[in-house]
């Protein structure tokens, strides 16, 4: 699924940088019914992780009350050049990944 990642392309060593992620997902709560009364099964993202050169730096658990197309923003310290890897895991075997490079000077 489409994802939008905002990581600064360049940073100075020791800088605090903001990482923003937005991903496409319907986040169906599992509490809603169709017009003929059938329950719409739950279909949400349950977990998000961010790794910085392989080491996990951020993790979040997501729940049914979170809106569609979840947006998450968090901070980290720029230590070395490399790659941020993002993974979203959800119901019905849903997985989605994205990555973004960073140059640290």
């Amino acid at each position: 699924m489409a994802a939008l990642i905002n990581v600064p392309a360049k940073a100075r060593r020791g800088d605090i940088i903001e990482i923003r992620t937005l991903t496409s997902h319907i986040m169906e709560t599992g509490f809603r019914h169709t017009a003929d009364g059938a329950l719409v099964p739950r279909d949400i993202i349950t977990s998000f992780t961010c790794r910085y050169n392989g080491a996990e730096i951020f993790r979040a658990d997501l729940f049914p009350a979170i809106a569609a197309n979840p947006y998450l923003s968090f901070f980290t310290v720029a230590k070395e050049s490399g790659k941020f890897e993002f993974a979203w895991i959800g119901d019905n075997g849903y997985t989605s990944t994205a990555s973004a490079p960073i140059t640290v000077e």
Partner: peptide, 10 residues
């Protein structure tokens, strides 16, 4: 912000 605008996913 095009990285926060969910319309950009579409």
């Amino acid at each position: 912000d095009d990285t926060a605008n969910p319309g950009m996913l579409f």
